[in-house]
């Protein structure tokens, strides 16, 4: 895991990892599109310039774009596998960011239902760490239960 994600809490590291993933992906898509669109619309003579043996700049641009898309998919998936999902699992199990590799083996009970991008589930352990009775169940069944539990607790006191 990247050292930048080892500092601070797991939540902050997860936030940073997801922000990096989003900005990189958006930057790639919008950058490639903007470059191609600006050249095509405002520098039209450049595209028809022949580079060598009949190959034009346009064809090289198409090849570059195809490569950029393939590389973008690969890097996005690799970043999710290597950084986002381990951090999200760690947030669920409430382990510190600099956890030992052996502790990384801990998995939630139902990994098939785990959604690394679902913040309500990712922060389930936050309520547990506060020690609020019933918060685990409330968080696991959605935010409305949390509000209801809090209101019930206030009414009881």
């Amino acid at each position: 895991m990247r050292s930048a994600y080892r500092t601070g809490s797991s939540s902050e590291a997860l936030t940073a990892a997801r922000r990096v993933q989003l900005t990189r992906g958006l930057g790639l898509v919008l950058g490639v599109f903007a470059a191609y669109a600006v050249v095509s619309c405002f520098l039209p003579g450049l595209l028809t310039t022949e580079v060598f043996q009949g190959v034009r700049v346009l064809e090289l641009g198409v090849l570059t774009q195809v490569s950029a898309i393939v590389i973008g998919v690969y890097r996005h998936d690799r970043h999710a596998r290597r950084h986002v999902e381990p951090l999200a699992q760690r947030v669920v199990t409430r382990q510190p960011a600099a956890a030992e590799p052996a502790e990384e083996q801990a998995r939630p009970a139902d990994p098939a239902a785990f959604n690394a991008f679902d913040s309500a589930r990712a922060f389930r352990g936050a309520d547990e760490s506060r020690g609020t009775q019933g918060a685990h169940r409330a968080s696991a069944h959605g935010p409305r239960r949390t509000a209801r539990t809090a209101a019930t607790a206030r009414a009881a006191t």
């Binding site: 601070g8 809490s9 797991s10 939540s11 902050e12 997860l14 936030t15 940073a16 997801r18 922000r19 989003l22 409430r94 510190p96 991008f117 913040s119 309500a120 990712a122 922060f123 936050a126 760490s129 959605g142 935010p143 409305r144 949390t146 509000a147």
Partner: peptide, 18 residues
């Protein structure tokens, strides 16, 4: 304002809860 949005990781505005 529903509580589910309070832990939104995407905006980067939520402080860590550890």
């Amino acid at each position: 304002q529903r509580p589910s949005a309070s832990g939104d990781l995407l905006t980067g505005t939520t402080r860590g809860r550890d």
